[in-house]
Design a protein around this nucleic acid. Structure first.
Lengths: 148, 148
DNA sequence: AACCAATGTTGGTCTCACCAACGTATCACG
DNA sequence: CGTGATACGTTGGTGAGACCAACATTGGTT
């Protein structure tokens, strides 16, 4: 309907639509903070909700693969937001734990993320936002979060 | 709710959910065709629906920026799916037109895209799929597709 | 004629998903 | 107990895609 819009073939593909929404989210995010803060936020949020975890476990829960988790954790460690120590019970594992500064950083990022969220979903009323959240969640939980 | 799942903070962010769905779509796509076929599909679909367009116009309608459009069109041209000629009315513009082979290629890709769609949305019944499509569309049309 | 804007093009950065390989550590099993 | 399979972290590399910057050509304006 929108004259300068995408063709119907694309507008009917959820995969394409989701990609565009995701890109818009990234764009709005970048306007407020460095882009890499998104993965920082994901890892810190996971640690706060589940407690200390190994890197592989982090990846499993977030759907990131372990190569990338490594880089994110290293960055967080360098910034003092996270601590890494080897698990005494299984010395292959690195236990990743959030620091006080990390929790603070998480709160800051969370506030910005909610701003982005509001900007992204302006067109939806609270009911529609809830529906969207539920539908996307349904799609996600129906697929195993494979990478490890 | 899913024990080995993402934290609530992320599951409540539409931007994050959309990104994950998009990644899943890309993964399912890659299982059926080369990944780059996605942009080929987008461009060919746009040409079929709107007719011949300049590269900038293509980017405007798809939300791609003109640098990337250039690469995609070049690839399509090398594969014989598209023809490029300079607009006689405005010799700055390249008019991009689909070839017969391009239209055929579009049909092939469309069939594969629908397969991906079905795999991605298994968890949703037809009604829910429609709702999801409408909600995402609403989000997208509320934001100008800026890059040019 | 002089200036500004649009277009295509090239080249480069950054995030992120992925693949491959390696060393260390653990575990299961014969 | 030893041996082989497996898991984990780490490094290095590929490729798509969103960006930014710069340039030459062309068109429009004044």
């Amino acid at each position: 309907m929108t004259d300068p819009g995408a063709p119907a073939l694309l507008r009917n593909l959820a995969s394409w639509q989701a990609g565009r929404v995701s890109t818009l989210g990234a764009r709005f995010t970048a306007a407020r903070m460095p882009l890499e803060a998104r993965s920082d936020f994901a890892v810190l949020a996971t640690l706060r909700e589940y407690g200390e975890l190994s890197q592989t476990e982090l990846g499993r829960r977030l759907g990131l693969d372990r190569n990338n988790v490594n880089g994110i954790v290293t960055r967080l460690e360098n910034n003092g937001h996270v601590e890494r120590r080897t698990d005494p019970a299984d010395r292959r594992r690195n236990i990743v734990a959030s620091t006080a500064a990390g929790l603070q950083h998480l709160d800051d990022l969370h506030a910005l993320a909610l701003d982005v969220q509001n900007e992204l979903l302006v067109a939806l009323d609270p009911d529609e936002r809830h529906q969207l959240r539920v539908l996307l969640e349904k799609v996600l939980t129906s697929h195993p979060a494979q990478p490890a």
